[in-house]
Amino acid sequence: MAVKSVSLDRGYWVFLLPGAVALLLVIIIPFLINVGISFTAWNGITEPTWIGLDNYQKAAHDKTFWMSFQNNLYIIVAMTIIPTIIGLFLAAFLYDFVANKIGNRVASVFRAGYYLPQILPVAIAGVVWRWILQPRWGVLNWLLDQVGMEPRNWLGDADIAIYSVMGIMVWFQIGYPLVIFMAALQRVDPELYEAASVDGANWLEKFIHITIHQIRPEIFVVVLMTLIHSLKIFAQIFVLTRGGPGRATIVPSYFAYQNFFEKANVGYGATIATIMTVIIILLTVLFINVQSRQELREAA
């Protein structure tokens, strides 16, 4: 009996083989090769030549490279900061006021409606907005024209294109934090609010000291996940502006894509992709760290 149970507890690693080999072939090895390519000059056809850190030095002095990361900060504002803040207020309002005083069903109808953009593939969301913002016959310019305001080339004007993209991303993104935060609020003890009311706390004080404090873990997850998503943004830019006009809306992933497939600068494309990866891995490590600390705290 003892021998048998030992043999059953071993040998599980066999089950890990297919998945681990697949991961190695499709993700790990391609990733390492990409890092390798970043140290070469390569047009994708002839033999690559080793150039060491030249691509990284080139990136450090490349205005387009810096522009792409600067634009990414705008995207982070639109995908992480604004949706998280709006999501917090909206979730608290729907959960506290609407669900309690008007009805649970009304609150869930609003939640579902605000969430709807999230079900779209980002590429399709881009197609929809490109249609609305079309300069000649688009809806937005038509509306502006009706009220006597100046129509604009929302995606084609270098001064405003990035703000148009930001607006679209806020629209697309709000549903995600809202749904997560509303679920999180369900586990907040209502007695905390009652006790605070007895102590004479106003709405804002309760919001800051109880709501935000209690759902900190979810806020953290939302911020990190959306940060990672915004660093990966590609399809929206591809559909809406192709990084333009000029380089007004270029982002790192689109810049990498251009170097890979349009400019035949595979080495430089790989460099940009590697730098993106380093940033994302640092964020993920932070995520794992905080999450395991959180689990420890919950277990204690």
């Binding site: 391609p30 990733f31 990409n34 894509y257 494309g269 990866t277 891995i281």
Partner: peptide
Amino acid sequence: IFFLMANTLPQEALAYPLY
């Protein structure tokens, strides 16, 4: 940790070798 990392890698960093 390995699987979680693989999940968050940007596809740009795999694209050219996969292609």
